[in-house]
Design a protein around this nucleic acid. Structure first.
Lengths: 420, 420
DNA sequence: ACAGTTTCCCGTAAATGC
DNA sequence: TGCATTTACGGGAAACTG
């Protein structure tokens, strides 16, 4: 009879952080006739869970009973807000939970809600219970916790399979890619297009004709590190999500960040473009980084690709990315610096794409002359700095890429270059 | 018999922040013969203070009794560490404290320590009490709290005059300037020299032949805003102290920051120096800012002084100050930029002074070319940007300044230009 | 309305546990 | 020892409160 809406973290329901307030909404779906008495809701954490089933035990610090209020907006239903803290109960953990392998963010909990009322002499007990919750103690655990919530809700309809992560099912790439697109759509306002998802699928599963039916394990998604990197696929992807949210939102939403492109594809795309054509790509080697790559041509007409060291949140909070693109300079042999970035791929003049995000931060404070930070790379032309070896490219791949990625239709110059 | 050492904030004793642990040391100065029993110390907050005397009431959250331990290091004395939280007691504040005018950081509190033991059948009570404490709820109140602690301990020897800030005495500039110098010495490792203190005295008291015997009121020191500025003298000075601690420590300790110089003095000093001679000065218009001023000469030989927009902690955490000085460029009419900073006043070549603090942050990450931030000012030579009017200078002041500030003796080039 | 004050809580660093 | 997890708390911002 009651349908609990879940406690919320900033936009991330079903995750609760210890020591931080959270609120819960319980909606009574039956309409009680003439409710002039007060309906008390009692909330319990991990009510029915046998101790030892879970590694950590928690309790609700504040008063756990609240009286329901009428709420106008929800047409006659009753709702109630809880607002309380959660704190770990220190228990001498004799028999440590069943799964020593599970991490904290894989441990599932629940909130139970109970109410009792009597109508015409009949006592009625109501009880309901939340979907599985993840309890974290620091925001640094939020990505992991959110991965669990996503995986659970993607792969099961069971209301409370608390042992879910004891043997988590696999997800098909079809399912998973849809969820990943949703993540971006929900948190930034723009999802991922087919090409971007393809790159992600390839990163996760290797080169395949079609990823759709490939199965992705929970471990591969979130627990194992990417080969040669000190982070997992989801940690990497989430770091980019955070980077967009904090530093790249307007540019991302204007669809000016291709973002997820392999270095091979990048080269294939830029190869035949005008010198100074560039695109924006997220770093695959570092968490939460974005770089630009532009194409130049040697004297003998050969294409050369140069990428700048990725910018991370620290750098970007000193200088917004649009201003970096605007003012970026390369100085060769100490000669007059030049901004090598001319056209956003395929051919949008830089200022046309980013002009309205420029931040003319020239704040005139009278006796002083204004000063700004200019991002700059210094090259020594005697050193072949840019001769990074071509990454391996499978035969025929170039054509495939071309086919797959070419049909970008630009309607007006202000339009996005990467339609979905 | 007991001498309490005080609870500590990061280097700031006598200030306690609610919700944060603090520790206290109580030393028993008498040596007890054969103490084989345990001595319990009970700690009470604001023990004897009549309620209503203070606006806010607090209590110690954790267990307030602790058993003394022997401590080897303090030759046979007994010491004990308390470690507990302080939380405001919510009181329906019927009769609000005696002084509605007092701010939170002017409200004084105490910690009392009690112990009881019996020796040869005689029961002995010991009791002692801390110096007045300030309780704050956020670090943003730390500067104000610290000002109170300084003022109290500078101007009274009374162990517990809780109403001190009801009518706080004045300090002579002699006393105060000594304390200010100590502050810098204690928190940075380098104090303030006579010229720097002179500038501060002038800022606080106006131009006087001698400030020594001038009286500074508590209000002028810490409560009233500086004329035309939205902050008080101490808030301004403390913001600089923080800036030094976080971003300028080595340069400050090398004595390369003149820092406290009036604009008049600055011009007088730079006037006859080589073009490109510069000095470093703290901003008087903004909290926690540092700028450099350099001298150039017009075609007609007239000296021109240019100051850059002050750098604050945000800018400095993107780019350390030494690197700003190293790479700073001025671009006039889009022509090849040039670093106008040549000699640190009076004549130390820039790289000699700051070279060892340069941060060659060129981290080569293979496929990428490194990028750095270059601080740059752009000027349009058609606009007379630097023609800020000469600040007023009293007659004869120039000579006085010259006399007063000239005798800088430079022993070697690596030596500090501003000996104390 | 507003300023002084407190609360809230992210995010880094340090401490702790295993 | 190293890694996983929690605690600590500075600092910016929002909420509170007279």
């Amino acid at each position: 009879e009651k349908q609990p809406c879940m406690p919320t973290h900033p936009q991330k329901p079903l995750i609760i952080k210890t020591g931080v307030q959270f609120s819960t909404k319980v909606r009574l779906l039956v309409k009680l006739p003439e409710v002039d008495y007060q309906l008390k809701i009692k909330t319990t954490f991990d009510k029915d869970l046998p101790p030892g089933r879970v590694n950590r035990q928690f309790f609700i610090l504040t008063n756990n009973t609240k009286v329901m209020d009428f709420e106008e907006s929800s047409n006659g239903c009753l709702t109630v807000d809880f607002r309380h803290l959660l704190k770990e109960k220190k228990v001498i953990n004799g028999t440590k939970g069943n799964e020593g392998l599970l991490s904290v963010t894989e441990e599932l909990h629940t909130l139970s809600f109970e109410a009792n009322f009597s109508i015409q002499g009949i006592s009625i007990d109501l009880e309901t219970c939340s979907l599985p919750l993840v309890v974290i103690s620091n925001v640094s655990q939020l990505p992991g916790g959110w991965a669990s919530v996503m995986w659970y809700n993607l792969l099961t309809n069971e209301p409370r399979n608390m042992g879910f992560f004891g043997s988590p099912p696999r997800a098909s790439w079809n399912q998973l890619s849809e969820v990943l697109g949703w993540q971006f759509f929900t948190f930034t306002g723009r999802g991922l297009n087919k090409e971007q998802l393809n790159m992600l699928g390839e990163k996760l599963l290797g080169q395949q004709v079609s990823h759709s039916d490939c199965q992705v394990s929970w471990s591969k998604f979130c627990k194992e590190n990417i080969l040669g990197k000190p982070f997992s696929f989801w940690m990497w992807l989430d770091s980019i999500l955070e980077l967009i949210k904090k530093h790249l939102l307007p540019i991302w939403n204007d669809n000016y960040i291709m973002g997820f492109v392999s270095k091979e594809t990048e080269r294939a795309l830029l190869k035949d473009q005008e010198p100074g054509t560039f695109l924006l790509r997220f770093s695959e080697s570092h968490l939460g980084g974005i770089t630009f790559t532009w194409v130049e041509h040697n004297d003998n007409g050969e294409a050369k690709f140069i990428s700048v060291e990725p910018y991370t949140k620290n750098r970007l909070s000193a200088l917004p990315f649009a201003d970096i693109i605007r003012n970026y300079k390369v100085m060769v042999d100490g000669v007059v610096p030049e901004n090598p970035l001319k056209f956003l791929y395929p051919d949008i003049p830089k200022d046309e794409a980013f002009g309205r995000h420029y931040n003319s931060q020239q704040n005139k404070v009278f006796p002083y002359i204004p000063s700004m930070l200019v991002p700059m790379s210094t090259l020594d032309s005697t050193l072949p700095l840019c001769s990074s070896p071509e990454p391996p490219m499978t035969p025929g791949m170039f054509d495939m890429l071309n086919q797959q990625l070419r049909p970008f239709e630009i309607e007006t110059a202000m339009n996005s270059p990467y339609p979905e």
